[in-house]
């Protein structure tokens, strides 16, 4: 068994309203960051998985995302493993 570090970004689905991102963007644009746009706020979750191989670790991470870390009604998630090598395609959790 090997320990695989995983990083997961949980973000709101693009069509879902993000009040936090909206309020933040409005203020920072007024305060000298007019060049910034399309700001949306999500969560970054770091963890490690004990698994036989990267594929199994990825499978565990995706299951964790679907069942716990992301809210399938509102959120999607992306998974990164091993030196930012992006193994998994984005998954909306449904």
């Amino acid at each position: 068994m090997t320990r695989y570090p995983v990083r997961m970004a949980v973000t709101l689905k693009p069509e879902v309203l993000d009040p936090a991102g909206q309020a933040t963007l409005a203020v920072i644009k007024e305060r000298g960051f007019g060049m910034v746009d399309e700001l949306r706020i999500g969560k970054l979750v770091d963890f490690s998985v004990q698994a036989r191989d990267p594929a199994e670790a990825l499978e565990v991470a995706q299951r964790l995302g679907r069942e716990f870390l992301a809210n399938p009604v509102l959120e999607r998630f992306d998974v990164w493993m091993e030196e930012d090598l992006r193994l998994g395609a984005g998954c909306d959790g449904e």
């Binding site: 709101l12 879902v16 309203l17 009040p19 909206q22 309020a23 009604v73 509102l74």
Partner: peptide
Amino acid sequence: MRPTVQVGDPYT
């Protein structure tokens, strides 16, 4: 049939 869920924004 679930629609995109409305999100509440108490600030607005």
